[in-house]
């Protein structure tokens, strides 16, 4: 009996140790993941002297909120943010609209060559970005779109992955609804407008947000498709800013915090849907 009890207690201790180990591992992961964010925010609030002082301080002695104003005016960040907002919202809108329309056709309309076209759409996913980069650049120059919003937005304006994702979501809408609409003589566009769009709204939001995040965080395409300071996005602007103020780390970190803020806010608002959407597709930016 006592032996049995002892074994039980040992097992309980093992479980407790296992539980503690689990939390220790999770916490270690959380600290390593979030520390650079912490360091970015706090470094951005230190004076330049304190930022480079040894030993480093974990929290700013004096909170220099003026760093944000200083960074904001040290480069045309207002213009960069405006450009990035137009670029990212434009891409998000364009991707959502074109993908919703195409996904609806693939999910609900009958027409010759549907399966072939769908295969072709999916096949465009196999074309890697490094192949299309230079031709797209030559193309937007030929169209006179170099250094314009049209040239920035339109090459990213359609996404086969989004079409695929939305088609899956639209197919999840109860079949009976479609049947009833058809029997009542509801035309396809009305069914799309009145039923598919509202019922697919969460999916549309995820697709739009993913497109927004991708465009906001993109460096390569804005770097190549624009040349003037007037058209720079925040990513290109932040990079050039970092080369201009290379020793003022506090201002640099304040600027980085500002650039990160919109996407982190969007993520926090819609994190559950976004994480599940990304986990389902495994997209990698």
């Amino acid at each position: 009996m006592r032996k049995h009890l002892g074994r039980l207690r040992a097992r309980g201790r093992g479980l407790l140790l296992g539980r503690l180990g689990t939390y220790a591992g999770l916490l270690a992961g959380a600290v390593v993941t979030s520390f650079p964010f912490y360091w970015m925010i706090t470094s951005g609030l230190k004076s330049n002297l304190e930022a480079v002082r040894f030993p480093p301080t974990l929290l700013p002695h004096a909170w220099e909120w003026s760093n944000y104003a200083a960074a904001w005016s040290a480069a045309p960040f207002a213009r960069y943010f405006l450009n990035s907002a137009v670029f990212s919202l434009g891409v998000a809108l364009c991707v959502t609209v074109t993908s919703a329309l195409a996904a609806y056709a693939f999910a609900y309309l009958a027409f010759p060559g549907r399966d072939l076209l769908f295969t072709l759409f999916v096949a465009t996913l196999l074309v890697p970005p490094e192949i299309t980069l230079i031709p797209d650049f030559v193309l937007i120059r030929a169209l006179g779109w170099y250094d314009t919003f049209a040239g920035l937005v339109l090459p990213l304006g359609a996404s086969a992955l989004s079409v695929f994702l939305l088609r899956q979501i639209f197919l999840g809408i109860p079949r009976e609804l479609h049947e009833a609409a058809r029997i009542d003589g509801c035309p396809p566009w009305l069914f799309f407008w009145r039923f598919v769009l509202p019922l697919g709204a969460p999916g549309l939001a995820v697709v739009g947000l993913l497109a927004f995040l991708r465009a906001w965080n993109d460096l390569l395409w804005p770097l190549i498709a624009t040349s003037s300071d007037r058209m720079r996005t925040v990513q290109v602007g932040l990079l050039t800013f970092s080369q201009d103020v290379s020793t003022e780390y506090n201002l640099l970190m304040a600027a980085a915090t500002m650039v990160v803020l919109p996407t982190v806010a969007a993520f926090l608002i819609a994190q559950r849907q976004l994480i599940e959407g990304i986990a389902a597709t495994g997209v990698r930016g």
Binding site: A110, T124, A158
Partner: peptide, 28 residues
């Protein structure tokens, strides 16, 4: 059975197809 409207269907596909053709397929 789906909506039997072949021509209309192509109109829905047009914007995405155009952009993908211009910026993904043609560049290849």
């Amino acid at each position: 059975r789906r909506f039997p409207r072949p021509l209309g269907a192509y109109a829905y596909l047009l914007p995405a197809s155009l952009l993908l053709a211009a910026f993904q397929v043609y560049p290849l």
